[in-house]
């Protein structure tokens, strides 16, 4: 009875992963699929590890795509959750409508999110340029997605807009599970708002934050859509990340063997992270549901 799902899983995840491992030791080309590739040992890996471009791609993925966007979402998500949970918003009866509006970016498909932001950030007449010029903050329009100084912050903005709601709602629920007695007790003891946050609220929220961080890293590190649709890895290859590198090397440069070796590097990194997740999160959970 488990055969159907394992049929799909084996031929979709299992066999391709193994065949990718083998291909990474060959010079397989997209033009010579029928002929197959020659076995060339570790040459792809040597080429990859000795290429300066690869380290730049790696840095882009690790720092800009993942680290910056994940930290930003955690911080903003927490701030937004605190805002939505504040007494002021409740008193003004704005908490519910805020939560509802929060669902809007989340329900927007990533591909559409990128499209609309490309329009907002358009380098000639986009809304953001218009607004900044209207406020007198800039003289000439900025090509947000083509200028190397601002292209990464622009991509990160798109990612944050699309995925911040999920982080916020998760943290908001975490906040609402903080026992009120704890906060009251802290207040009786004369703790200010800041102290209460760092000594009561944040420690209570920490497990949620850690799990969220781990999941965000998983989702973002491997992500292809945001960068590819926003800039196509450009200008030039300035915003190239591992996911787009795999696609470009395989389907534009036709070097499937090399592309596979990039994939294996990525798989290795994800496997380490996967083990951490499995060990500290998933196992505990299985005990509860199996």
């Amino acid at each position: 009875m488990l055969a159907p799902i394992f049929f799909f899983l084996a031929f979709f995840y299992g066999y391709p992963t193994l065949s990718n491992l083998y291909n990474s030791f060959t010079d397989l080309s997209l033009l010579g699929l029928k002929r197959g590739g020659e076995f060339i040992g570790l040459r792809n890996y040597v080429e990859l590890l000795s290429s300066r471009d690869f380290y730049r791609v790696f840095w882009n993925t690790l720092f800009w795509l993942t680290a910056v966007s994940v930290v930003l979402r955690l911080v903003l998500g927490l701030a937004l959750a605190l805002l939505l949970n504040s007494m002021t918003l409740r008193r003004w009866r704005l908490a519910t409508v805020s939560r509802l509006l929060l669902l809007v970016p989340w329900a927007t498909p990533p591909i559409v999110a990128v499209v609309v932001w490309r329009w907002l950030l358009d380098g000639r007449q986009g809304f953001v340029n218009g607004a900044l010029q209207g406020l007198g903050l800039i003289d000439r329009p900025i090509a947000f997605l083509a200028n190397v100084d601002v292209v990464w912050p622009s991509i990160v903005t798109i990612i944050v807009w699309n995925t911040l709601p999920l982080v916020t709602l998760t943290f908001l629920a975490g906040l609402q599970s903080v026992p009120p007695e704890l906060e009251e007790a802290a207040e009786m003891d004369g703790a200010g708002a800041v102290q209460r946050f760092f000594h009561v609220t944040l420690p209570h929220l920490m497990p949620t934050v850690v799990v969220m961080a781990l999941l965000l890293v998983f989702w973002t590190f491997n992500n292809f859509v945001y960068v590819w649709l926003a800039t196509g890895a450009g200008p030039g290859l300035f915003t190239n990340v591992l996911a787009t590198e795999i696609y470009i090397k395989g389907f534009i440069d036709f070097e499937l063997g090399y592309s596979s070796s990039v994939g294996m590097v990525m798989a290795a990194l994800m496997a380490v992270l996967g083990l951490v997740y499995f060990r500290f999160v998933a196992l505990r959970e299985f005990r509860e549901i199996l």
Binding site: Y13, N20, L28, F218, F224, G274, L283
Partner: peptide
């Protein structure tokens, strides 16, 4: 059972981009 269930669940975290090249070859 837990191992098999774990294998299924880990599919959620599997990077799709890695599968694109080998699946393309397999499909071809």
């Amino acid at each position: 059972k837990r191992l098999l269930f774990g294998a299924v669940i880990l599919g959620q975290l599997f990077p799709w981009i890695i599968l694109v090249t080998p699946l393309f070859i397999m499909f071809a």
